[in-house]
Simulated assay, not measured.
Amino acid sequence: MNEQRARLRWDRQTATAAIQQAAARGALLGAEHVLQASRQRVPIAEGTLERSGAANIDEQQLTAAVSYDTSYARRVHEDLNARHSPGRSAKYLESVLPESAATVQALIAAQVRRALRS
């Protein structure tokens, strides 16, 4: 039998930095997924609210955020008594979070796995 040897060189700082960068990339992909899902539920009058949506990442803190930036976004989100077109609703952002959690976790994990293979 042929004896095979392998040598592994582990640079903790480089590995940690690559994992953090990959996790941030995955978190941003996850936030973009949540944004896209929530845009499918945003009440539409003129489309301004839907277009104001954004996904952002703080790479140092590894936190992602999805937001809608109009003066009335919060009111529309919280008004459970308002009538909306079919498929559109209040809680357009909050309601997609539980449904998207597994996908967001998978997106982050995939980016970290990819970084560890490199």
Rank of each mutant, 00 (worst) to 15 (best):
N81Q: 11
Q36G: 06
K91Y: 03
L93D: 03
T70M: 06
E59T: 11
V76Y: 06
E46I: 12
K91G: 00
A110N: 08
W10K: 05
E59G: 09
V76C: 05
R39W: 08
Q13P: 05
S71D: 12
A24Y: 01
S67C: 00
A6N: 01
L93C: 04
D79P: 11
A37M: 12
A22S: 08
S71R: 07
L93T: 05
R41A: 06
H84V: 04
D69M: 11
G53R: 01
Q36T: 09
R5M: 06
R41K: 14
G87C: 10
R113G: 02
S89L: 03
V42C: 07
V104R: 05
S85W: 12
S89T: 08
Q13R: 13
I44M: 07
A110G: 08
A65G: 15
A101G: 02
G26D: 00
G87V: 09
Q13A: 15
E32H: 01
V42H: 02
A73C: 08
T14S: 06
V76D: 11
R39F: 06
A64G: 15
G26P: 01
D58S: 10
L29Y: 00
R41Q: 15
R83S: 15
Q20G: 04
R117C: 03
A64L: 13
G26H: 07
A82V: 03
T48R: 05
G87E: 08
P43Q: 09
Q60M: 10
H77K: 07
D69P: 09
A102S: 13
G30H: 07
L35S: 11
H84Q: 03
R83N: 15
T63N: 10
R41M: 01
Q60E: 15
A45Q: 10
R75C: 08
T16Q: 15
Q21T: 14
V76W: 08
T103E: 14
R75Q: 13
Q40I: 05
R83Y: 12
H33V: 02
A31G: 14
R113I: 02
V112T: 08
L116S: 04
R25V: 06
S52V: 10
T103V: 11
A27S: 07
G26K: 00
R117D: 07
A55I: 11
R39S: 03
L29E: 05
A115S: 07
S118G: 15
A6C: 03
D11N: 15
P86F: 05
E50K: 08
E46N: 08
D79S: 10
R114M: 01
T16R: 14
R25Q: 14
H84W: 13
G53E: 09
Q4F: 14
A82W: 10
E50N: 11
T103H: 12
E32Q: 15
I44D: 01
N2R: 14
V104Y: 00
T63I: 09
S100C: 04
A110C: 06
D11I: 04
R7H: 07
S71V: 01
R74D: 10
Q40N: 12
G87I: 12
D69S: 12
R88Q: 14
V112Q: 05
A37V: 06
S89H: 10
L28W: 07
A65Q: 15
R5N: 04
A22K: 08
A45V: 11
L80R: 11
L8E: 07
L80A: 12
R41H: 14
E99T: 02
V42T: 13
T16V: 00
D58P: 04
R9D: 15
A24T: 04
Q20K: 15
Y72Q: 09
R25Y: 09
